[in-house]
Amino acid sequence: MTFSIVATDGVDVGVAVASKFVAVGAFVPHAEASVGAVATQCYANPSLGRIILSAMKGGSIAEEAVRRALAPDPDREQRQIGAVDIRGNAYAFTGRACPEYAGHVVGSGYAAQGNILAGPEVVEAMAKAFEAQRGELLDKLLAALEAGEKAGGDRRGKQSAALVVLRPRGGYLGLTDVYVDIRVDDHPEPVAELRRIFRIWELTLLQRDDPTDVVSKKDVAGEVQEALRRLGFYRKEPTGVWDEETEAAFREWAGFENFENKIRDDDKIWGSVYRYLLERGRQVHR
C-alpha cells in the first residue's frame, strides 16, 4: 500500500517512500552505507530488509540477495521489494498477489515500485523524475517521490512519508553515516511536509551551500543587529558596525538554533543562515 524508490549514486544510498499507512518510515526503508538500500512493502516483512542487506554486504548483487531472501518465504507473492547495491545493480520484485495497481520500474542505480497505486503512471513518473533531476541523490529521491504523488500515488489517499540517505561519515559532524533521516508519520500532506522538514534539516545540518551564496558581515551588520535585538540576543541599539559584541550575539543565536556547523571562521555569513535570521527577526514584533 505504498510507493517508494531505492537508489544509489555509488557513494550515497537511499530510500524515499510515501503511503496511506501510518509511519511508513518505520517499516519500508532499510539501508547501510557502502552496501545498499532496500524497500520492503505490500504486506511488508521488514526482516527481509536486514536479510537482503546482509547478503549484499556479503557480496551478492541486489537481484541475487532478494531472490535468496524470498525463496523460503511462503507469502512471497504478497511481497513487493525494491533493492539496489552500492555498485548500482538494482532489482525489484512484485508478487502476483499484490493489490492492483502493483508494479515497478528498474533503471540504472534505482528501482521504483508501488502497489494499490492510481496506475502504472505513478512508478513511471517516479523513474522519469529521478533520471531528470540534477543534484545529489537526495534531490533525485525527493523529486521522484513528489512526481509519484503528483501522478496519483497511493489510490487510497495520503498519510505518511520518509526519506533516508546514508553517506560514509556524512552525518552530523562526520560522526555517523546518516546524511538524511526524516519521517512524517501522520499528516494530510505528508510529501509536502517531508519537503518542509527537509529544508530545515538542510539548513541546520547539511554543508552543501552554494559557495557564492555568502554575505559580508560588515555589509549586513545593521540588519543582523536589529534581527538579533528583536530575538533577544543583541541588547543595545544597532550601530551598523560588526564588533565583538555583535559576533558574540550572532554565535549565541546560531548555537540556540543548532547552526554550530554553519558558523564560518571568516568575515562572511552563509546566505541561507542570513536569510533565516532576518526571517526569524521579522516574526518578532517589539
Rank of each mutant, 00 (worst) to 15 (best):
residue 55 A to T: 05
residue 12 D to C: 07
residue 34 S to Y: 01
residue 130 F to S: 08
residue 111 A to W: 00
residue 114 G to V: 05
residue 233 F to M: 11
residue 14 G to V: 09
residue 111 A to L: 02
residue 10 G to F: 00
residue 252 E to Y: 01
residue 281 G to V: 06
residue 259 F to M: 15
residue 258 N to V: 11
residue 219 D to P: 00
residue 107 G to D: 06
residue 32 E to F: 03
residue 148 G to F: 04
residue 281 G to Y: 09
residue 242 W to G: 05
residue 153 G to Q: 05
residue 96 R to P: 00
residue 54 S to K: 15
residue 58 G to E: 07
residue 13 V to M: 02
residue 80 Q to C: 11
residue 92 A to P: 00
residue 15 V to M: 09
residue 85 D to W: 06
residue 282 R to I: 05
residue 243 D to Q: 09
residue 154 D to H: 05
residue 157 G to W: 09
residue 196 R to L: 07
residue 38 V to G: 04
residue 50 R to K: 14
residue 197 I to F: 09
residue 234 Y to M: 03
residue 44 A to C: 14
residue 98 C to E: 07
residue 126 M to C: 05
residue 110 Y to W: 03
residue 285 H to W: 14
residue 117 L to V: 08
residue 174 G to H: 13
residue 76 R to K: 15
residue 56 M to T: 09
residue 138 L to F: 12
residue 226 E to V: 09
residue 70 L to C: 00
residue 87 R to T: 09
residue 45 N to Y: 00
residue 29 P to D: 07
residue 286 R to D: 13
residue 96 R to D: 10
residue 120 P to M: 11
residue 251 R to G: 05
residue 271 G to F: 00
residue 227 A to K: 12
residue 109 G to C: 01
residue 241 V to Q: 14
residue 118 A to K: 13
residue 115 N to K: 04
residue 12 D to K: 08
residue 30 H to V: 04
residue 249 A to M: 08
residue 179 Y to A: 12
residue 117 L to M: 13
residue 12 D to M: 11
residue 244 E to S: 15
residue 172 Y to F: 11
residue 184 V to C: 07
residue 46 P to G: 03
residue 161 A to Q: 00
residue 105 V to Y: 00
residue 224 V to W: 03
residue 2 T to S: 06
residue 70 L to K: 01
residue 237 E to N: 06
residue 224 V to F: 08
residue 275 R to E: 12
residue 257 E to L: 11
residue 133 Q to T: 12
residue 145 L to E: 02
residue 24 V to R: 05
residue 82 G to E: 01
residue 23 A to H: 09
residue 56 M to N: 11
residue 234 Y to I: 07
residue 181 D to H: 11
residue 152 G to T: 10
residue 268 K to F: 14
residue 240 G to H: 10
residue 141 L to I: 06
residue 100 E to I: 06
residue 161 A to R: 04
residue 128 K to I: 07
residue 50 R to Y: 10
residue 189 E to T: 08
residue 78 Q to T: 04
residue 177 D to M: 10
residue 161 A to C: 04
residue 205 L to I: 05
residue 188 P to R: 12
residue 205 L to C: 10
residue 10 G to V: 02
residue 282 R to S: 13
residue 156 R to A: 14
residue 185 D to S: 13
residue 87 R to M: 06
residue 39 A to S: 15
residue 262 K to S: 08
residue 236 K to A: 13
residue 79 R to Q: 11
residue 269 I to T: 03
residue 282 R to F: 10
residue 149 E to R: 14
residue 239 T to A: 09
residue 182 I to M: 06
residue 165 V to Y: 06
residue 194 L to R: 13
residue 24 V to A: 05
residue 61 I to H: 12
residue 64 E to W: 02
residue 189 E to L: 04
residue 31 A to E: 15
residue 176 T to R: 06
residue 139 D to V: 10
residue 86 I to P: 03
residue 127 A to K: 04
residue 53 L to S: 03
residue 90 A to S: 14
